[in-house]
Nucleic acid binder design. Structure first.
Length: 906
RNA sequence: GGGCGGUUAGCUCAGCUGGUCAGAGCGCCUCGCUUACACCGAGGAAGUCACUGGUUCGAGUCCAGUACCGCCCACCA
């Protein structure tokens, strides 16, 4: 039999590309992803565990953030599945209305086309083609990451099920008085040619200019100019054309006599009043402000208070329109220049100075957002927000990490109504119909209403709203629309409300809040029990990854090169809930090395099977009567780690899970478990029953670790698990195997073996520090306390091998030890004492230096403990256990100090 | 203007409800191709836990303040 296979079928090293795809196929073939799949081993009566994944935007390809999402969600799902719960991870895609149009606009622009040149129908045609391609790309990417999605329940926010939910949801909101149509100031993006919600406006600090412009007063009766002026400060001279008042503060003495006077707006030659309003800050600028209700939020408020007309002067492209001036058709910034020049020419431009200000820009296109008056649909959110707040305040929905509850509170408390109209094409058309009389009919019927519900005019005379919904409107229905709502489907009944909502904290308002608000109102229940917010992935320098910066790591490239498991491990390992993480090559390398380590450890275990056990042997428990200390230690450690992993999972501390397993597998199982077992397995003098027990112990431990690690690294654990013997009760595949139970701890075995490990380490350390020839064997004399005698003898062959100690002589007391071995390197490990290299030559000076250092350390610690113990307050107030612990360590340290001092001849 | 994070070894970060927590990975130094693994093994160096006060028998760990860094929210022309 060759080295490559050693009967296990495992390649010599970890090569994920060889098996990941095949394993995913096996899972699919076994139908284990669906909670009710053929291969499911779930207890149908157990409480289902449901995660609705944030559906990725169907705009291209996955980034690392998506991979992280999937890794975390899949981890939770797989854990629940192994606990025997029906587990559902529901896959989906979001049509991403504005984002998708932005991408497609870019594509057709390269062909010399525009949205307008194609027209609505042809544009949507192009979109459907585009999306058909990206859809397949994205779904295959999801598979590559290893997500155990129930593909039979795949949903798309533009599919019929979702469309129906959107219509139904909107009609209900309308019927309940929570959706209304009105003229209001909306955020207009001239680049995207649509309105956007407040959340999509990014405040951007910029240095602008504050101009002071002089307006002339007129006598309203005669129209004559009384030769008086009032100067206003503005950053937006082009909006002068839409001014309908000049406002001052009511208490401002400078202007008191002007309130009620009339001012002539230049260029449009409109006569408007000077009004007094508290909103004006007398200290800013000139203390007088021009009022443009149609293009400014504050001005709009002022306008409403004073009954001012609102005159819009910009069209959809943000060019001047409807002013009957010579600026008609000019872009807003071109118009600004001209107007400034003209003001200058008239002598009415009084001053200008640089001004730090905040400009709202479109999150998508970066264009400066223009407030404009539009008739659009809004959702009244105050009552919905109140219910959402109630849900988190009462704890019916829990937000993790908890600190985000404060953010949540704050946002939902001051929330404005939600503008859901978009003047885009790709999305759900708002199901509202208008009749010639101007009546509105909202209908959930796919074909629209049969007639106007107000005046009864027939359907043919009705016209449907051409606007579509904000993409987040359909996303907001996701947790229940995916399960068949508004129908009372079996899925909806069984899986709603869902268990956990996992997503990045960056869309807590966009998405989580909307799902919560809409979910509570429409279904009467909170859509999920727990909101788990992940942090964002950044590049190694802490910058956001973006294509333009060129610092993106493509998850597929990583998977091709390194494997999906290391990617998942690295993403989870470095993450703390809600905190961003820097991500780069080194983390992946470390995870890949770990996978390789696990691979080889398994290869070793499989290949080390004693000949007395048949290759096809069914899994046996290690025979307790033949367990040595190393075996008892290992089993106890497995129990401890299992317990710790359970606790970490319960606390959503997924990074901790990976740390625990990395440490347990690498530093305990491999470094000591396997090393100790090797010796016993290879010992021809050991009875077969003992060797068998040792091997079964390794299998037992490995099996547990593979199970515990499976939710994090599903592919490699599945592959390796197939190579080890299974119990009769085990299923074919690890993915549906049972989560390990917590075994019994054996504190004595742990302590004893760890004492021996410390001894071996001490000997290695002494040898290395004294520059002993690495391969050489040196005699070692040991004095060991009575209680460790049995363990010492049982592990004697291992100690010899691992410490290169030969002969290894045991003495009953330190005195006897010193008598037998008066010279040599000194090792102190707890209360074990050893002398290395009796009679051999080594560098005594180096040994002395090492002991001096150890002595100094021990002495410092001893001093610290004594200091504490000398405090009456400490003795009086500290808990008993702490005091006892301090006393014990004082005794230990004192003994160490004595022995070290003694060895150093003091 | 509010709110929230961060500041722990050279780098990236863990440290839950205060007492063996001063840790890990990478990097660095010295050795080693020992029969699972050089994607490895053995050994080692390295931190006044940002600063200042306070609470406490005891504080990276709690409180207050300060300084930087980052994020979110917010209608000042």
């Amino acid at each position: 039999m060759t080295e490559t296979t050693s009967g296990s079928g495992l390649a010599r090293s970890y090569r994920p590309a060889d098996f990941e795809a095949a394993i995913y196929e096996r899972w699919l073939a076994a139908d284990v992803f669906a909670p009710d799949g053929r291969g499911s081993t779930a207890d149908p009566n157990a409480e289902p565990f449901v995660i609705i994944q944030p559906p990725p935007n169907i705009t291209g390809s996955l980034h690392l953030g998506h991979a992280q999402r999937t890794a975390v969600e899949d981890l939770m799902t797989r854990h629940a599945r192994m606990l025997g719960r029906p587990a559902l991870l529901l896959p989906g895609l979001d049509h991403a209305s504005i984002a998708a149009q932005f991408v497609l606009d870019g594509i057709i622009a390269r062909e010399g086309e525009t949205r307008q040149s194609l027209g609505r129908e042809r544009y949507l045609e192009r979109m459907r083609d585009f999306v058909a391609v990206t859809r397949d790309v994205m779904l295959s990417q999801q598979r590559r990451v290893g997500g155990s999605f129930d593909w039979s329940r795949l949903r798309f926010t533009m599919d019929e099920v979702s469309a129906r939910a959107v219509r139904e949801a909107f009609s209900r909101l309308y019927r309940d008085g929570l959706a209304y149509r009105t003229q209001a100031l909306v955020n207009w993006c001239p680049g995207c040619r649509t309105s956007v919600s407040d959340l999509e406006v990014v405040p951007t600090p910029e240095t602008g200019t504050l101009w002071t412009v002089r307006y002339h007063l007129v006598d309203p009766a005669t129209g004559a100019s009384p030769d008086r002026t009032i100067s206003v400060a503005t950053t937006r001279p082009e909006t002068i054309l839409g001014d309908t008042a000049v406002a001052v503060h009511p208490d401002d003495g400078r202007y008191r006599d002007l309130v009620g006077a009339t001012v002539r707006i230049p260029f449009v030659e409109r006569d408007v009043p000077v009004i007094a309003d508290d909103a004006v800050d007398p200290a800013f600028g000139t203390g007088a402000v021009k009022v443009t209700p149609a293009h400014d939020r504050d001005d709009h408020e002022v306008g409403l208070r004073h009954g001012l007309p609102a005159i819009g002067v910009l069209d959809d492209a943000a060019a001047i329109a409807g002013t009957s001036t010579r600026y008609e058709g000019l872009d807003r910034y071109e118009a600004r220049k001209r107007i400034l020049a003209d003001l200058e020419a008239r002598g009415d431009l009084v001053a200008s100075k640089p001004h730090e200000m905040v400009v709202g820009r479109c999150q998508r296109s970066g264009d400066v957002i223009e407030p404009r008056l539009k008739v659009q649909w809004f959702v009244r959110v105050a009552p919905l927000a109140a219910a959402a707040l109630e849900a988190t305040r009462t704890g019916r929905t829990r937000i993790l990490p908890e600190r985000f509850e404060k953010t949540w509170e704050q946002w939902l408390t001051g929330i404005h109504d939600w503008n859901v109209s978009r003047q885009l094409w790709w999305g759900h058309r708002i199901p509202a119909w208008y009749c010639p009389e101007g009546h509105i009919t909202v209908s959930a019927e796919p074909g629209g209403p049969p007639a106007c519900e107000v005046c009864g005019r027939p359907a043919v005379e009705l016209e449907q709203e051409s606007d579509i919904f904000d993409t987040w409107f359909s996303s907001g229905l996701w947790p229940f629309s995916t399960l068949g709502w508004p129908d009372d489907t079996p899925d909806f009944r069984r899986f709603y409300p869902t268990s956990v909502m996992e997503t990045g904290y960056d869309i807590i308002f966009f998405w989580v809040a909307r799902m919560m608000m809409l979910g509570i109102h429409l279904t009467g229940r909170e859509p999920f029990q727990t909101v788990y917010l992940s942090g964002l992935i950044r590049d190694p320098l802490g910058q956001k990854m973006s294509k333009t910066k060129g610092n993106v790591l493509d998850p597929l490239g990583v998977i091709d090169e390194t494997g999906a498991d290391p990617l998942r491990f690295a993403l989870i390992h470095g993450a703390t809930p809600g905190n961003d993480q820097r991500f780069g090559r080194t983390k992946l390398d470390s995870a890949r090395n770990f996978a390789n380590k696990l691979w080889n450890a398994t290869r070793f275990v499989v290949g080390a099977r004693p000949a007395s056990i048949a290759p096809s042997a069914e899994r046996a428990l290690p025979d307790r009567r033949h367990l040595g200390p190393a075996e008892r230690w290992l089993l106890s450690r497995v129990a401890a780690v299992t317990h710790a992993v359970d606790a970490a999972l319960a606390g959503y501390a997924f990074g901790e899970v990976t740390r625990l397993l990395y440490e347990a597998i690498w530093s305990e199982f491999c470094d000591w478990g396997l090393e100790l077992a090797k010796i016993r397995l290879a010992d021809p003098t050991a009875p077969a029953a003992e060797r068998e027990a040792t091997w079964w112990t390794l299998v037992e431990a490995l099996d547990a670790y593979l199970r515990l690690l499976h939710p994090v690294m599903p592919f490699v654990t599945e592959a390796l698990w197939a190579a080890i013997p299974h119990r009769r009760s085990d299923p074919e595949l690890l993915i549906v195997a049972r989560w390990p139970g917590v075994g019994e701890r054996d504190a004595a075995a742990e302590a004893d073996v760890e004492a021996i490990v410390a001894l071996v380490r001490g000997i290695r350390n002494a040898r290395a520090e004294a520059n002993v020839e690495p391969g050489s064997w040196l005699p070692v004399d040991v004095s060991i306390p009575q209680r460790l005698g049995g363990t010492f003898e049982a592990l004697r062959p291992a100690i010899e091998r691992l410490a290169r100690a030969r002969p290894l002589s045991r003495h009953l007391t330190p005195e006897a030890l010193r008598e037998a071995a008066p010279d040599g390197l000194t090792v102190l490990a707890g209360d074990i004492e050893a002398t290395v290299g009796r009679g051999a030559r080594q560098d005594a000076g180096l040994d002395t230096a090492r002991l001096e250092k150890e002595l100094a350390e021990a002495q410092a610690r001893l001093d610290a403990v004594r200091e504490r113990l000398s405090s009456h307050a400490f003795l009086a107030r500290a808990p008993r256990a702490i005091v006892d612990g301090a006393r014990a360590s004082e005794a230990e340290l004192a003994a160490s100090v004595d022995r070290l001092a003694d060895r150093l001849g003091r």
